[in-house]
């Protein structure tokens, strides 16, 4: 896995959020990006996950140097989990199945993968439940299940425990630990919790003045 970020710049309303930001993610494991609220961590992740466009600078994904803005094949090798999970107005199962369905997978494959992902995040017993009746912690776990069922090469987690209780925070941290053990994805997550960064991170980075510092 290689994600080569070079000279990223992003400005919102004349305020510079990312300022010539560069970093090379070239190891397998969990990278944790720390920094106070508003320092640009989320913007960095959203740009890397192709949810937003940078004003200038480049990102070379894997071994390619050229990236097209709407390269759906490349986009599907990355997944981002947002701090607040947008839940589709349907069951837990169908929420997790969505990403596989739009990739055109057969329903038997979808069923197997979704059930495995839901068991992995501890939502197995809630498969048929309406997703909007889940607690906020369970909703966040649903968001993670929805991402990891796609087996992305790079999984971006933007403040995955920012708005949930301690119990669910522990569950999510153990999910991240289990994913790390499986070693299928490189995880790049943001947090403003230093202790959490120590607990789950292999590589700790700090964002300051719109740049990444090691």
């Amino acid at each position: 896995m290689k994600l080569d970020v070079s000279h990223l710049t992003k400005t919102y309303d004349k305020k510079t959020i990312l300022n010539d930001c560069s970093y090379v993610f070239d190891k397998t494991g969990t990278y944790v990006l720390m920094g106070p609220n508003g320092c640009g961590k989320s913007t960095f992740l959203r740009i890397c996950a192709m949810l937003e466009r940078q004003d200038s600078g480049d990102i070379a994904y894997f071994d390619n140097s050229t990236v097209l803005a709407n390269d759906i094949t490349l986009k599907r090798r990355l997944t981002l989990v947002l701090p607040r999970t947008g839940v589709f107005n349907t069951t837990v199962f169908k929420n997790v199945a969505y990403g596989l369905k739009i990739r055109g997978l057969h329903h038997t494959v979808i069923e197997r993968k979704v059930n495995a992902a839901l068991d992995f995040v501890g939502l197995g017993p809630k498969t048929g439940q309406h997703a909007r009746t889940l607690s906020s912690g369970e909703t966040q776990r649903l968001g993670i299940a929805r991402a990891l069922v796609l087996e992305p090469e790079v999984l971006f987690l933007d403040e995955p425990t920012a708005s949930i209780d301690e119990e669910n925070t522990q569950i999510i941290e153990s999910i991240i630990g289990a994913m790390k053990k499986e070693g299928r994805s490189t995880i790049i997550m943001t947090t403003h919790d230093r202790e959490q960064a120590t607990r789950v991170g292999d590589f700790q980075l700090v964002m300051r003045n719109g740049r990444i510092e090691t």
Partner: peptide, 8 residues
């Protein structure tokens, strides 16, 4: 919209 976009 963001969810469907992040899921590819």
């Amino acid at each position: 919209r963001q969810a469907s976009r992040t899921l590819g």
